[in-house]
Design a protein around this nucleic acid. Sequence first.
DNA 1: CATGAATGAGCATTCATTCAT
DNA 2: TATGAATGAATGCTCATTCAT
Lengths: 205, 205, 205, 205
Amino acid sequence: MGTRERRAMEKQLRQNQILDAARNLLFSSGIDNISMNKIAKHAELGIGTIYFYFKSKHEIFIALQMEGVALLYSRLETIHKKKIRSDEKLRLIGRSFYQFCEDHNDYYDIINYFLSSPKIFFEPELKTKVDMSGKKITALIEEVVCQGIKENIFEKEDAGKFAILFFGSLYGLMQFKKFENTILASQTHKDIYEYSIEKLIKSLK
Amino acid sequence: MGTRERRAMEKQLRQNQILDAARNLLFSSGIDNISMNKIAKHAELGIGTIYFYFKSKHEIFIALQMEGVALLYSRLETIHKKKIRSDEKLRLIGRSFYQFCEDHNDYYDIINYFLSSPKIFFEPELKTKVDMSGKKITALIEEVVCQGIKENIFEKEDAGKFAILFFGSLYGLMQFKKFENTILASQTHKDIYEYSIEKLIKSLK
Amino acid sequence: MGTRERRAMEKQLRQNQILDAARNLLFSSGIDNISMNKIAKHAELGIGTIYFYFKSKHEIFIALQMEGVALLYSRLETIHKKKIRSDEKLRLIGRSFYQFCEDHNDYYDIINYFLSSPKIFFEPELKTKVDMSGKKITALIEEVVCQGIKENIFEKEDAGKFAILFFGSLYGLMQFKKFENTILASQTHKDIYEYSIEKLIKSLK
Amino acid sequence: MGTRERRAMEKQLRQNQILDAARNLLFSSGIDNISMNKIAKHAELGIGTIYFYFKSKHEIFIALQMEGVALLYSRLETIHKKKIRSDEKLRLIGRSFYQFCEDHNDYYDIINYFLSSPKIFFEPELKTKVDMSGKKITALIEEVVCQGIKENIFEKEDAGKFAILFFGSLYGLMQFKKFENTILASQTHKDIYEYSIEKLIKSLK
DNA sequence: CATGAATGAGCATTCATTCAT
DNA sequence: TATGAATGAATGCTCATTCAT
């Protein structure tokens, strides 16, 4: 392995080291309690070093968000690759998103962070990056719907619109998890979520 | 009017004065730019006085959130009172929520703030308050659905669950507004939103 | 003494405490080594307290500058009040400025700071404040010149212009003090300065 | 061309490359926004490389300052070479300095930076370098005055002293440019400057 | 020669909150 | 009731410089 390659690898390593620290922090103290100095301390690096690898805090957040979306995407992709009916795929996708949010509170928080932050907040360049990574998710859902239409499982439909409805709805519903003991009263959040998946799928038929 | 009553009224007055200032600030500088000192200056009161009437910043935010929800509720209520078919009611409710978000970016931001902040964030007491105010919204939707079922416009249905699906979905979809030029690509957000309303209503039939 | 008066006095006191700290720091470590945190530590106050009394670092600098100019002005005023010929007054003013720079290296540095900082640097409001304080100096010189003209000591002259030439020249010359051992070579700076005063005065006759 | 010479030339080249970057930065973002890292990036060189050619930021600044002074000097020299009366020369020199400050705000700022920084600031060695480059300016003026004396245009005079008065005055007056709308009130800065040149010249006669 | 990763002190400023009066 | 002075930890970020490779 040449010097250059080793250098590149080390650079990658450091970046991961920083991202690891940030992710840990995110997980343990919530998104509002991450600061660059804390990340540095956690990563056992000088604060300057952090800035050497990431231009700003935003950039770290975005890297994390993209990690999260990539992880979610890979889960959904696995489902998409299965040889099963499209309606079943949608069902599994819905559940998979739920599971993802449960398993990765950290990534969920950060995706949420981007989805819910006021409109103009990130520099356009970064925003586009984030958005595009999100687009992969809805695109995948769209494909599933298209497939279902081809298979005559679903009615003819604007698959692109439905994909956004589907993902947007599930995202919105996830937020209600925190109302389990108040608004939701007697119902469990999980039940409502499952019900919603079915309802949405049925609306395609 | 007795002393006690006058006292109570004055208290109410002061509280409103503070809330007015906070609301103005929220509107003019965004949710991230509100500080207690700024509120005090705006309200032309001492900072100590603010803390006399609200014991924390959270409390002020919650009061504002409740205002927002109340405003939204009153809009929805107006619709509910109309003598129209339940499906039309749902349609109008959906649109009304959209309009509300457009008209009251300030309240939208603050409702969003509560809906999207990490799970354990507020003292339980305050949280309950917030949640309950939100419950009124879903309860109203539930009523509309029940009515529709009675009228045989909708199929028999778990109205409570549907209400949450309906409101959760629309809320989730609203967040995608900011992707109008990226994820949504060729579609307008408004179209997708309208499409979603119809889809959801249809799923009841 | 009422409460209000005591309060006002205490406020004044604190402000002076802060300004004292800043002035000391300025004197001991030069203008580039003053930071708000250092001022706070020196003043034995919390950093927040500093910001309670002064909106920004600029404001402290400006307060200091105005102190300095006021001090210089008072020295010049004393001269102006004397019952002596105007040419002698100018001579004393020139020397007085020199002495002032020697005695108050700290104030000299800060006046210099304002005089030599790039054009657009301060918020207009603050800039005006500073400028106006400076104007008093040139206005006083102008008066002296006018008086000299009336007394027929000086030729008829645009006193306003000359005042600026006079003060500007002396200011510029002061900067050359630091070249005493290099550019100035065999001459002493003081000699050149004295020579310049005389030359400028003579040019009025 | 031997190896050694080529080496020397390459060195010169690199230095210029760095200086170019620094100059550009100086011009485009002002003296307070230059950092070694920025210079490196601009010059498309490693930061280490910069430090190989200049051992500190000061050294770069000094190189730039000397460039500036050299440029000013060359302008003045052109005037000095003309076959015109010495008084006219002084007039043109004065105007030329004014024009130089207007044309080269960047160099003006950096010359100013050296002229106005607190006394002991640079390592003696560097300071001497800077000072000497400045000396050339006053020496040239001195020559002009000497010539004028020889030509009997000017009275017998200590030309060295006058040169410093002349240049110091004009430098000081330039600083007042920024007060055009405040202290200077109704007068234009340019008028005052012109007036001053004349006054200074007349004082020689 | 040339590189660029690493440092960490330092910066100006903000802010929710407390508490003596 | 009402005030507002005081706090100090915390924030994101910059920068000149070093040094191992």
